[in-house]
Design a binder for these strands. Structure first.
Lengths: 168, 168
DNA sequence: TTTTCTGCAAACCATTTGCAGTTAG
DNA sequence: CTAACTGCAAATGGTTTGCAGAAAA
């Protein structure tokens, strides 16, 4: 039962202002077309979600959102994220930790490397691996619809920290 | 949130008698050395677990065990499996379904292909993929300690059934 | 007004654990 | 007799859902 740290310390890249607001308003329009209503809280959730740019848990996102909308409840964030997943704008990931993590759904497929020490998540793409997966599937007579590839280990910082010990 | 069927219909290979009993008694001895006691119920659980030969959930295993030891409780199976995982004799898997699945820990590493229709699980080994994973890790500065690769799709039977429709 | 949104609290549910009685050694 | 084992029932803990009031359209 691998347990990943509750709060990945490394903030990672965050999306540039323009990208985020454009994305949010486009999405907002799409939601409206679905007959859904507009709301301030939801806007903040969307904004913070796409601004985070990394894999965030509901709790982490809630924390960010509450800085702007203090009364926000867990369920609202939960339901909004669910909405995004259903509309295909977010992807739910389970890296074995306690909580599920969510990330904006990019158009391009990618897999993940997860640091078991600090929880940092990096993405990668390796065409050759995908091809080999297809080959294996063919060999076994399977028609693959999706896959899941995650590498677990130590990121360079944590590996270095480990070698050096934790002395100040 | 992928939901895999509760009861994989395909029984898959089951280990030959001799292998199982040998394995069970060896394990039993090892447990005794740990200061643990011998018990009829536990023996049945071990026997059924290694006899199953495939990925089984606690519930599935419990069902088999109860045919021989009707009074057996869920927690006992749970605790025995936990014991096996800790001793390195079993591996816990999570293919996204409701329950965790367990399989005897073989010495050789392997990955899985899972049929999303019937829940069948096949194992495979692809050295080339492992090597590419190492390459990717090196590129990103990670020291990999483990990984997880699962292919999801339709097995040949389910694919065929799908093409033919469900007519009798 | 009507429909959707929200926060809160309760419900879910697989998994864990506490407990008291049973059993192996 | 002591320590481990067992079944049962209750506790956990993240995730979902029911509900009544608030807010859009």
């Amino acid at each position: 039962m691998p347990r990943s740290p509750a709060t990945p310390p490394r903030p990672a890249r965050s999306a540039p202002e323009k990208d985020v607001s454009a994305r949010v308003s486009a999405l907002s329009a799409r939601l409206k077309a679905r007959g859904l209503k507009h709301s301030a809280v939801r806007d903040v959730i969307l904004d913070e979600f796409f601004r985070a740019g990394t894999h965030v848990s509901i709790e982490q996102l809630l924390e960010r959102v509450r800085k702007r909308e203090p009364a926000t409840g867990y369920s609202t964030v939960y339901r909004t994220l669910r909405l995004l997943v259903e509309s295909g704008d977010a992807t739910e990931r389970d890296f074995g930790g306690a909580h599920a993590l969510f990330e904006p759904a990019d158009s391009h497929h990618h897999d993940h490397v997860v640091c078991v020490e600090c929880g940092a998540v990096r993405e990668f793409e390796e065409k050759a691996i995908e091809e080999l997966q297809e080959k294996v599937a063919r060999r076994l007579g399977f028609r693959i619809t999706s896959h899941r590839l995650e590498l677990y280990g130590l990121c360079s910082s944590c590996a270095a920290a480990g070698r050096a010990g934790r002395a100040p």
